[in-house]
Nucleic acid binder design. Structure first.
Lengths: 217, 217
DNA sequence: GCTCATGTTGCACTCGGTGCAACTTGTGCA
DNA sequence: TGCACAAGTTGCACCGAGTGCAACATGAGC
């Protein structure tokens, strides 16, 4: 199988293989979760279903829960990506509204489905929380370094109140994102239809809207 | 050891024993965490240090991480307690400022210390996140049922937008709480002195303050 | 002091998670 | 094209988390 000329840019064969294996494992885990629930399968099962050894499974994911949470990670990674594409002078809360909703429908559907499937399993819930929190940290780090550059080189970083402002703001945004998904789930349950997902998008925007006006009921 | 007459109200001997054992286990876990770091001890070690069997340890905590996170739980439980003592017509954000800071200094110190010790261990971090999230859920449930009662018996619950408002608000409050602790740690590291803790209290109030004015920098 | 409920313990077992050493596969270069 | 090295996979052995179960100990109620 020679290298098909064309769109392959800097992606070596190895990287492609790794990405494919990773996706195969995650997909197998999701399949098993759908069919058996979180306590209905083991890391062995996932490895077999994905056609790799148990040891290789753990080379890619630190646990079965991590494999499932990777879907949430993926969604949030594209949110970050979208966020960084917004104009830097746009208010952050506005950027957030766009970024949270500017994702492929399939990604949003998977986010919603895995969120639904997560209910009832404590350890998986923790991994989901971790994914949202990692997203916060990444955004804070990115914006923080942006501001540090803009502020000039003399000052060592930011003042405490600015740092608090940034952390509180970003974490609140993420909290509102989670709240929206939560409320959506409480109303629509497992319904992943386009109409239902459109409702989720609305909720995401509304939640940030509440945040913007300081929750003045 | 006969029952010392006096302040013992409805607390049976069994309950006292259980509470004492639970505290002993949690204290032993914290001690080992301080001395060896999270990967430096096992559930066995904690059990031995607390004078119980390994099996009993797991009767009280689902994992070593859960034992440590119980300190955060305790802090957040008293926050909830304080929150419910506030007048019901007080704005929630104001109540939150009081509740987050109206705790015993020792509890705040332990919260801060365990937060510091948590850095660097992924699984323990997840348990801490879970503790904060459980706090959100409890507050949402409590306030939700309050409002349901006040709204009258005819309507089945709350409208979607009200529910979103409640979830987003409470989760943002908790997010600001975490943000304050995080920023405090980035500045004060392991410093648990009263002065440092006073600074933490200020940060908690400021963070909610930012939230109240919609982060209009 | 007897009885029952509640809590503790040891045992055995499953599964998550990891270091290690052998092996296979892709990459770069002559 | 083939050779040598790097990177990835696998099996193996091991440790520790977590749980069901059955025997035992302890406090509650009478």
């Amino acid at each position: 199988m020679t290298t098909t000329a064309g769109d392959s840019i800097t992606v070596s064969r190895r990287e492609l293989n790794k990405a494919a294996t990773r996706e195969a494992i995650a997909a197998a885990a999701l399949e098993l979760l759908r069919a058996n629930g979180m306590n209905g399968f083991t890391a062995d099962d996932v490895a077999n279903a994905a056609g790799v050894s148990r040891r290789t499974f753990f080379n890619y994911f630190s646990s079965p829960e991590a494999a499932i949470a990777s879907f949430t990670q993926k969604y949030l990674d594209t949110v970050i990506e979208q966020l960084l594409l917004r104009p830097q002078d746009e208010p952050l809360l506005e950027s957030a509204q766009h970024a949270l909703t500017a994702v492929a429908p399939s990604d949003l559907a998977t986010l919603a489905e895995t969120f639904a499937l997560t209910q009832g399993d404590a350890q998986l819930s923790r991994f989901q929380l971790e994914a949202w929190d990692n997203c916060s940290s990444q955004i804070i780090a990115t914006i923080g370094s942006r501001l540090a550059v803009r502020e000039g080189e003399g000052s060592s970083g930011m003042d405490v109140n600015g740092e608090l402002y940034l952390h509180a703001l970003v974490q609140s945004v993420i909290a509102c994102g989670r709240a929206a998904v939560e409320v959506w789930f409480r109303r629509h349950g497992e319904d992943i239809s386009p109409a239902s997902l459109a409702r989720l998008r609305e909720l995401l925007v509304s939640a940030i809207g509440h945040l913007r006006d300081g929750f003045h009921s």
